[in-house]
Amino acid sequence: MRCNYCEWRCELGPQQYGVCQMYYVDQGEIRERFPHRWSSYSVSRMESLPLYHAYPGARCMTIGTTSCNFMCRYCSNGFVARRDPAEQIARMYVLSPEEMVRMARKLGCHNIVFNVNEPTVSLQTLAELKVHADEAGLPMGCLTNGYTTEESTELLCSIFSFMNISLKGFTPEFYQEYLGARDLEPVLRNIRRIAQTCHVEVTTPVIQGVNDGELMEMADFVADIDPQIPWHVFRLLPEHEMTEARYPSIDAINEALHDVRKKLDYVYFHNFVGSDWVNTICPGCGHEVIERFSLGCGGDRLCAFDCQDNRCPVCGQEIKIHGTRVLWNAMEVAR
């Protein structure tokens, strides 16, 4: 029986688990091997994920499971995402969806964001979590590589109302060589589809000399969907198999983004401490409507929000924001 969660469409059996090693077949149905198991839960700032245009200032409970359907050579969470999930399972948290939502409330979080590994490998558990999160009034978001099938993309959209989708390159060759995936096309298809119903931000880690020449094409693609989609250009942090790689030049990438910024309203360049390019500038008049501070991998934070009712106070231009600005310590939820 073939898995229909991601575009690998792996052949599954009772002891045949596919590329991600997270699903199997039992009595003619695809099931998760490790339901309700979590590698982590913690508190994070929305801006750290990064999600810059959804619930600015919110306190998120970030969660993750284990494994991935990509094999990124630079994976920053390889110690969770690239290891055999069966080896990790004894050290994972066992929490039912109800317990997970209760934890989010105890931590005073305003939403739940799946950000450690790829949500596609745990969609059944996440669909269950969605039911309980809805009851508690907690929106759910995620970071995804966008390699879902058309069917499971619909499931993804039904679970998450805001997503940051990685567009890691713009050629099939890059996806094959650096990410271990088959193709780029499903990712492009899914970004188009998800942007129709969910809040979408896009992230691209730049490997100098490899995918920096594709930035303009990527910007054209995103702009064609919606020039107001926020785009996070990341300076690659060489991890996992690429720890010996050179850190990309910040000045060179910033220079390459000069023309890209004319195509999209919200282009950010970060993933390094002290970045100058994390603030939101009103596309109408150039007023700085949201100020942030970037600690790179230490996480970004909201510093100032001059954008009441999601409009620029100077020219009245609407600023694309999903939800509303949230005070960090608002709604400290009692047990």
């Binding site: 942090l237 991890e239 390094f272 790179g296 991998c297």
Partner: peptide
């Protein structure tokens, strides 16, 4: 050093 959770940022 500027590292967080062993991620090296400089």
């Amino acid at each position: 050093c500027f590292a967080r959770n062993l991620y090296n940022q400089g």
